[in-house]
Design a protein around this nucleic acid. Structure first.
Lengths: 352, 352
DNA sequence: GTGAAAGCGCTAACAC
DNA sequence: GTGTTAGCGCTTTCAC
């Protein structure tokens, strides 16, 4: 069943049917009603593909994410998805598995004309090929919005967080507890959250006159397993740190695994502050102090920026050239894991 | 740039270009090369929408899930997504938020023509409207595969798990520990996992000559908050249960929240066994004994079934009428939370 | 306010 | 082996 069947049935031309389908004005109320009646009666719904071909665009947006199972990303997707649904966009989900090759492959197979926009958390900011491909999308009129991670060699609209400030606050919280020997398990240096959080760590130390110890900086690549190894390495130092800042949720889990294995009590034998919260820990003995941010809203915001770009493309809005890069604020939630039994202040309050 | 440009440039007809694009045989090696050269040279890629319109189908599959952020569903998505990518399908993700109205809305807006297949974890099996819509999809040639939950009034291909058996094993494990007063926080009665797991609970009791106590059965609707309330209710009974079976991961979290609040020690003051594991707990003091199943594989399997249906539709395979309903096995991982200090066997081994 | 008709870019008979 | 051509279902000028 197509627009012609409806037209015939309603005794009008396909053009008119198309008009009511698209809510055009110039249609007599009477004919409009008649047509809508027929449409309902025949339970007709227009063919999106044909429509897309005709108008040369779609309402599909692609969301590319490094790890489908990471709750942080799920939450972003949730934000994107809710806002997309409200505005009748459909979102395709692609997992890159933290693998640039896979990222390229997906980007190549994404038919440009099928996508109206692209939201991506790129695997690596050092990757030129991804940057090239993204630029191509923009050139073809498909706007790109980054979330959380940046790319070099190009500027796109983006939603980031105050990684440096958040990390700095976290480490300063440890310093306030009296810690001087503070380690960090970093993310990859090729991602904004990776290097900015490290920068925040360094700044906190500098602000407080604590000199940097290279041994205390180990990369965990935001991966649980590597972070576990990193934690082992830190603890096995001759002069191990009394506190560790873990750079993201996976990093924190890896570190916790190590502590558990060694039967070290968090908030007593060792202190840990993490970036990004882990909801499930709330009902356990792990009272994690963590940097938090409005993750769901980051997704919504990315979608909002995209829509703005669509409107600009249609000439509805001006200032086509301004690139929008939003920074969301972070805040620290203290729960006790920043404490240490050997340092002033004690940790009793948290271990009742 | 389109197929005509390429044709002109290569000095052939658009049909021939189309032939090489689609790997048809009847093309002279020489012309094929020539055309491929031009394609590469002009960096041309065919328009998927036009192709879809022409052949009357797409490679898009829709995945509808009740809760985008539940890790259980993320894992399923991961399975679907990986397999889809390997076979060049694209997956649209839709979150129904456990809301039938939203589910209907999405189903209605999913233009039938745009989807080649549908994988869904329906909100409620009692919902006729969803069932009707799904049937319509199948009638229009869009196969539907259910995961985890069923719908009444219709039969679709599906991937379920052995909910009853899994729950039964979990509860029998508690019974083996000496428990006689065992509570359950159930899921909604309108979902297969909900009622089947309850059935498993009942069967375990019956198998072991333990009579049913209605007070011990409380519905948590698979929601964390409701489950928290349910746990409170159980503990406030005059003769509270010594052990509780929690029917899914969210249910377990709600119960844990309550225990934490009341400072009850899991595996000592009370025993809990849950359906579905919670990864994050591994590094905490919560040694949850849980029913486990191959979640990622359930996603892959759903996708595999869908592809099979596509092949059948194309007449590649026979036996068009057989409905395929797969049941994945579950197994129990014991970690100590089934123990209780007041019962034989002791729990010391788990509290070193 | 409405209709006729020319596309959108590709595929698939059918003819040669 | 290759070309011609008529769609796929919709939108959108341009007339009327």
């Amino acid at each position: 069943m197509n627009i012609y069947d409806i037209a015939k049935e309603a005794g009008v031309s396909p053009a008119t049917v198309s008009r009511v389908l698209n809510n055009h004005k110039n249609v007599k109320e009477e004919t409009r009603n008649k047509i809508q009646e027929v449409i309902k009666g025949k339970n007709y719904s227009p063919n999106t593909i044909a429509r897309n071909l005709s108008v040369g665009t779609s309402r599909n947006i692609a969301f590319m994410v490094p790890d489908i199972e990471n709750p942080f990303f799920s939450k972003i997707l949730h934000g994107i998805s809710d806002r997309a649904m409200d505005n009748d966009y459909n979102v395709f989900m692609f997992g890159t598995a933290e693998n640039t090759a896979r990222e390229h492959k997906i980007l190549d197979s994404l038919k440009i004309e099928m996508m109206k926009g692209l939201i991506i958390i790129p695997v690596s900011e050092a990757d030129r090929e991804t940057a090239e491909r993204l630029k191509e999308f923009e050139e073809q009129g498909v706007p790109v919005v980054l979330i959380d991670r940046d790319v070099r060699n190009a500027r796109f609209d983006a939603v980031f967080s105050e990684d440096m400030e958040g990390a700095c606050e976290a480490v300063e919280c440890l310093i306030e507890e009296g810690h001087k020997k503070i380690g960090i398990i970093t993310g990859p240096d090729t991602s904004r959250p990776g290097h900015e959080r490290l920068k925040g760590y360094k700044r906190a130390l500098a602000n407080n006159g604590i000199s940097l110890n290279k041994d205390y900086i180990i990369c965990g690549n935001f991966m649980e397993d590597e972070s576990y190894e990193a934690m082992k390495q830190l603890l096995d130092l001759e002069d191990p740190p009394t506190a560790v800042f873990t750079s993201n949720n996976m990093t924190t889990l890896g570190a916790l695994r190590c502590l558990k294995e060694r039967q070290m009590k968090l908030g007593a034998d060792i202190s840990v502050v993490g970036f990004d919260d882990i909801k499930e820990l709330a009902y356990t003995d792990i009272h994690l102090t963590a940097v938090t941010r409005p993750v769901y809203e980051m997704g919504c915001e990315a979608m909002r920026i995209l829509e703005r770009r669509f409107r600009k493309a249609e000439g509805v809005e001006e200032e086509k050239l301004i690139i929008q890069r939003n920074l969301v604020k972070t805040w620290l939630i203290k729960r006790g894991s920043e404490k240490h039994k050997d340092l002033s202040g004690g940790s009793d309050t948290y271990h009742t």
